Simulated scan of single mutants.
Amino acid sequence: MASKQLILMVTAWDPQTLGRWEALIRFLVGEKLQHNGHKPKGRKSGPVDLAQQQSDTLLPWRQHQSAKGLRRQKRDWVIPPINVPENSRGPFPQQLVRIRSDKDKEIHIRYSITGVGADQPPMEVFSIDPVSGRMYVTRPMDREERASYHLRAHAVDMNGNKVENPIDLYIYVIDMNDNRPEFINQVYNGSVDEGSKPGTYVMTVTANDADDSTTANGMVRYRIVTQTPQSPSQNMFTINSETGDIVTVAAGLDREKVQQYIVIVQATDMEGNLNYGLSNTATAIITVTDVNDNPPEFTTSTVSSNTSAQQCPDTAWL
């Protein structure tokens, strides 16, 4: 079978620095090399075989144009992104990634990691096999305790000499819905004038969720569960599901009939999904305040008095 070449050009562009990087990747179709990269015996070596050997190694990026002109980009480590879900059940240690330098084909390399979570408190949350470069997490993660870690990976030769510049490692703890919304207060006190029109603001209740607020795990929604008494309507108030603002929704507030309402409010995460979200409740006590809406009234409609007229002598003032 005749051998064919497939050549791909990968380009990366940085709009901030106006830098452009390109890498040439060659694939050989129909030609099989031995595991060590050499062609089987009896076959002549050629440019196609050399291209296959290069595809087995890390290719350097070439920077063609930037603010600093033309230059060749240094080879770098191969570091995949690292995401760790919180509350993992293990077993531990649990492998995350393998870190390696492309120079490990030439010399023996020893790997290590430094930073908070490695050699700084909390100690040994992460570990690395110095020979293979396999990196592990040693215990369950808690995003609410720490959401991310910044480590540095090091590579040295057998004599301790640096063979690569240290590289940054960012470990992100993936959030799980493991926290209920918590109201700032268990009891809220508010008031509203009697006779207020529908839409009148009463008070705001607030619940916080320790989970990631950028995901549904930490997105809280509110609703009114019960209102006591249910007079003159069972729905005298409504609540903004996102802000927690309580407002009047019906007319008929009359302090002379109902002086106080007790409203039970529920906060649920997962954007208010009652099937999957976690919930908590708080009590809102709403006092109906008096306004001057009643004129004075006599207790009886008529008043009578039994007094007899008496004659008095004239008096002269000197």
Rank of each mutant, 00 (worst) to 15 (best):
49 D>W: 04
276 Y>R: 14
16 Q>F: 12
186 Q>E: 09
158 M>H: 06
92 F>Y: 15
306 N>Q: 15
63 Q>I: 05
270 M>F: 10
151 L>P: 02
138 T>H: 11
281 T>V: 15
177 N>L: 01
174 I>A: 03
311 Q>I: 02
115 G>R: 01
74 K>I: 02
111 Y>L: 02
168 D>G: 06
296 P>K: 06
167 I>E: 14
260 Q>E: 14
119 D>F: 00
19 G>K: 12
293 D>S: 04
68 K>A: 00
245 D>K: 05
114 T>V: 09
182 E>V: 12
303 V>L: 15
193 D>K: 06
185 N>P: 00
136 Y>K: 12
273 N>W: 04
134 R>E: 14
150 H>A: 13
305 S>E: 11
122 P>V: 01
177 N>S: 12
185 N>F: 07
67 A>P: 04
38 H>V: 08
312 C>N: 11
31 E>L: 13
90 G>F: 02
227 Q>T: 15
214 T>M: 02
143 R>G: 14
258 V>S: 01
34 Q>S: 09
249 V>S: 13
67 A>K: 06
60 P>W: 05
116 V>S: 06
280 N>E: 01
38 H>N: 14
86 E>H: 08
199 G>Q: 00
299 T>D: 13
47 P>F: 05
81 P>E: 02
215 T>S: 14
63 Q>C: 15
17 T>H: 10
78 V>Q: 15
25 I>G: 07
273 N>S: 09
42 G>H: 14
251 A>K: 00
174 I>P: 06
248 T>D: 00
211 D>P: 13
178 D>I: 05
143 R>A: 15
232 P>V: 05
272 G>A: 12
198 P>F: 00
157 D>G: 07
208 N>I: 00
82 I>M: 01
